[in-house]
């Protein structure tokens, strides 16, 4: 045995011993972690194991292990269903709309709020636009029905006074997706500015002053100072959005949709809910859910890779 190897061995022993010492010294910290470990084990990792029922002919009485294997039969059946591709498509369309229309909004809003120098005004606007984030979709749904209804709603009142026909924003399948996207923007755009505002709060004011001295116009200041300082934040949020492209907003749709608009509004999650919990086809529903999770995961990895290729930090 060579001398360096023996030394390395000895070092490893010492390292192991100090590791044990460190573990023992940290025993209280491990105790603190216990509730979290239990929680993540039971409510996150055990369900990942439970997702195995997607490959089984699951029956509640037999349990996850006891149920017979079905291989890819559930998936084969699923991929043969027109209905499945239909909800898959709905999910993507709604999600892409939300991304395209919903993503720029908070960004623009944050830049404009950053330009407003009157502190009290800015605070008041912030308080108001954050508010809908804290209100549940059930309540927001009620507000929407009130606002958009055909006879007493403000919006249709305005349309009618301009000589138009009332529009069934919540009942007509031509308008339903638009209503989904815009109501989502209304609820979340304000809150989504907060992370940009936080990043902008960290910008050195001297940068703006120096630019002003050099005679830089307002647009140039926004372009050269404001935007670059939130670029990393924009990229991270974009990655996260792309990584959740399969989430088209279960709670919102669940509250607002009805059979009359299923053809445009039924998404993967609502479909899983119905075939799983209403019809009791657990294995099939789990297969859909697993398919969704897998796609989300792949998208996240791709988006992250892309952002790194473009020289930005990824999220991991």
């Amino acid at each position: 045995m060579s001398v360096p190897a023996a030394a390395a061995d000895a070092r490893a022993v010492v390292a192991r011993r100090t590791l044990w010492k460190r573990v023992a010294r940290s025993r209280y910290l491990y105790i603190m972690l216990l509730p979290a470990i239990l929680y993540y084990g039971i409510f996150h990792y055990y369900p990942m194991y439970g997702a195995l029922i997607a490959f089984k002919q699951f029956s509640i009485t037999k349990g996850i292990m006891g149920s017979p294997w079905a291989g890819f039969k559930n998936f084969e059946y699923l991929f043969g269903l027109d209905k499945f591709w239909h909800v898959f498509w709905n999910t993507i369309v709604i999600s892409v709309y939300r991304l395209v229309f919903g993503f720029p909004f908070p960004l623009i809003m944050a830049i404009l709020m950053n330009e407003a120098r009157k502190l009290l005004f800015k605070k008041t606007v912030q308080t108001i636009v954050y508010l809908p984030h804290f209100i549940s979709w059930v309540i927001m749904g009620g507000l929407l029905i009130n606002l958009l209804s055909a006879d007493g709603g403000v919006v249709n009142g305005a349309i009618r006074s301009l000589g138009g026909e009332p529009v069934g924003f919540l009942t007509d399948d031509r308008y339903f997706r638009g209503t989904l996207v815009w109501s989502m923007i209304w609820k979340e755009f304000g809150w989504n500015t907060i992370i940009y505002m936080a990043a902008l709060a960290g910008v050195n004011p001297q940068l703006y002053e120096a630019a002003l001295m050099d005679g830089a116009s307002r647009w140039r200041r926004i372009w050269h100072i404001t935007l670059p300082s939130i670029r990393a934040t924009i990229v991270i949020l974009l990655i996260l959005r792309i990584g959740s492209l399969m989430e088209a907003g279960f709670e919102q749709i669940f509250v607002l949709y009805h059979p009359g608009v299923y053809n445009v509004a039924d998404i993967i999650d609502t479909y899983v809910y119905r075939i799983g919990l209403t019809d009791g086809r657990f294995s099939l529903a789990a297969a859909v859910g697993l398919f969704k999770s897998a796609i989300n995961f792949v998208l996240l990895v791709i988006a992250n890779r892309l952002s790194r290729m473009m020289g930005e930090n990824g999220i991991y």
Binding site: P47, Y49, G50
Partner: peptide, 11 residues
């Protein structure tokens, strides 16, 4: 990544 709605329900 997560197990999905149904496995959560079963837990």
């Amino acid at each position: 990544f997560g197990g999905g709605i149904i496995p959560n329900f079963l837990v």
